[in-house]
Computed example of a mutant assay.
Amino acid sequence: MKLTNVTAAGAALAFLLSTAAMPAFAETTDKRIALSNNYAGNSWRQAMLTSWETVTGKAVADGVVAAADAFTTAENQVTEQAAQIQNLILQGYDAIVINAASPEGLNGAVKEACDAGVVVVSFDGIVTEPCAWRIAVDFKQMGKIQVEYLAERVPDGGNLLEIRGLAGVFVDDEISSGIHQGVAENSQFSIAGSVHGDWAQDVAQKAVAGILPSLSDIKGVVTQGGDGYGAAQAFKAAGRDMPIIIMGNRYDELSWWKEQKDANGYQTMSVSIAPGVSTLAFWVAQQILDGKEVPKDLTVPFLSISQETLEESLKTTQEGGVANVEYSQEEAQDVVSGAM
């Protein structure tokens, strides 16, 4: 009888240990998660959506969740995205992952979702509504380090051209704030001009071409990503000396940099948030639905490429895409554990 009890106890213990080692997604097999994306008009957003589809598609196929559908509004319109979120609530989604058009403008719709029992996780373009979760990089620091890099390269300073992102979006404001803080701390530099490139090389090229005739010698171009190659083309077309242009991890930027490096030793750096942060947001939503405790604010590192790592990074970046990192469920759990 004692032997039987020991055997039963051992079997129970073995079962508990085996289930403890398994990924905790049994409670979310019938859950539906939606992505509400405010904009898709550049290579970073396309890569972000591709990462989402790749990782969530496998999660659905594996039975981790029942659905993980992506929805994109036409052109960064707050009212349209708010209506989209309200529609997703009515469709019965259990969680909504948001790349937001505005940090405050969507708070009403987000609160409606929370009040309806929907988990809301914002990333990249985050929301300030307290009931939502937020995943972001230190965008202000991402702007500041560009100026710090230029201070090392050009100790005497000079004029800088700032290329901003999409007007009114949290990311744009934060990176620009960091750039201006960097200039304030390195007074040998001054912002000679500023344009919006919408994180797209064609928009940036046109904007830079339009402002160049009014600018004197430019020593450096501080950017937000997706605009470096367009800026280079504008300077080339205008017959201007090529400044140090900070790149944003896009394939066209890295390819141009590599060509210039091989031809004349051109040196710069590249920095951006990895598009695969959308997959971290997905797993965070899944973990919350599974009853896990997750801090309301998570910070992830930005992805930086140096003169030394350029070739390696270019090899692993898809043509037309962006240097990237995608998250597994285990990696997302590690991020959460680290934040706890």
Results as ranks from 00 to 15, higher is better:
residue 114 C to D: 01
residue 209 A to T: 13
residue 1 M to L: 10
residue 28 T to R: 11
residue 246 I to S: 11
residue 307 Q to Y: 06
residue 327 Y to P: 03
residue 247 M to C: 11
residue 172 D to Y: 00
residue 255 S to R: 15
residue 70 A to R: 06
residue 161 L to D: 03
residue 337 S to F: 04
residue 151 A to N: 08
residue 188 Q to D: 08
residue 161 L to E: 02
residue 173 D to L: 10
residue 140 K to T: 10
residue 171 V to Y: 10
residue 61 A to M: 07
residue 234 A to R: 07
residue 325 V to D: 12
residue 196 H to Q: 10
residue 310 L to G: 04
residue 102 S to N: 13
residue 213 P to M: 10
residue 249 N to K: 05
residue 234 A to G: 04
residue 339 A to Q: 01
residue 275 P to F: 09
residue 263 A to I: 02
residue 244 I to C: 08
residue 83 A to Q: 11
residue 36 S to M: 04
residue 317 T to F: 01
residue 194 S to K: 15
residue 43 S to H: 05
residue 311 E to S: 07
residue 103 P to D: 12
residue 329 Q to A: 15
residue 205 Q to M: 13
residue 246 I to E: 06
residue 274 A to D: 05
residue 36 S to T: 04
residue 130 P to M: 08
residue 310 L to P: 03
residue 303 L to A: 12
residue 53 E to A: 14
residue 229 Y to A: 14
residue 247 M to E: 14
residue 24 A to Q: 14
residue 323 A to L: 13
residue 94 D to R: 12
residue 45 R to I: 03
residue 288 I to H: 00
residue 319 E to I: 09
residue 200 A to Q: 14
residue 207 A to V: 05
residue 330 E to V: 14
residue 175 I to C: 06
residue 332 A to K: 08
residue 34 A to H: 04
residue 180 H to Q: 11
residue 314 L to Q: 08
residue 20 A to G: 08
residue 124 D to Y: 05
residue 299 T to V: 14
residue 223 T to P: 01
residue 313 S to K: 05
residue 267 Q to W: 01
residue 331 E to R: 13
residue 174 E to K: 15
residue 257 W to T: 07
residue 236 K to C: 04
residue 236 K to D: 13
residue 334 D to C: 02
residue 11 A to W: 04
residue 250 R to C: 13
residue 83 A to S: 12
residue 176 S to Q: 12
residue 240 R to Y: 01
residue 204 A to P: 10
residue 206 K to Q: 14
residue 176 S to I: 02
residue 277 V to L: 08
residue 29 T to N: 13
residue 98 I to H: 10
residue 164 R to Q: 15
residue 80 E to R: 14
residue 57 G to N: 10
residue 81 Q to Y: 05
residue 252 D to W: 00
residue 235 F to N: 14
residue 297 D to M: 12
residue 302 F to L: 09
residue 116 A to K: 03
residue 283 W to V: 10
residue 144 K to P: 00
residue 282 F to N: 11
residue 182 G to T: 06
residue 14 A to E: 09
residue 228 G to Y: 01
residue 60 V to H: 07
residue 66 A to K: 12
residue 246 I to V: 15
residue 59 A to M: 06
residue 251 Y to Q: 14
residue 241 D to Y: 01
residue 219 K to M: 08
residue 103 P to E: 15
residue 157 G to C: 09
residue 22 M to L: 15
residue 237 A to C: 11
residue 172 D to K: 02
residue 70 A to Q: 08
residue 243 P to S: 06
residue 70 A to N: 00
residue 38 N to H: 14
residue 184 A to T: 09
residue 235 F to R: 11
residue 117 G to H: 07
residue 278 S to H: 03
residue 317 T to D: 03
residue 335 V to N: 02
residue 278 S to M: 03
residue 41 G to S: 09
residue 245 I to A: 02
residue 248 G to L: 05
residue 191 I to S: 07
residue 16 L to P: 00
residue 207 A to R: 07
residue 335 V to P: 05
residue 334 D to P: 00
residue 224 Q to L: 11
residue 331 E to T: 14
residue 187 S to F: 00
residue 194 S to P: 05
residue 197 G to H: 01
residue 296 K to E: 04
residue 245 I to D: 00
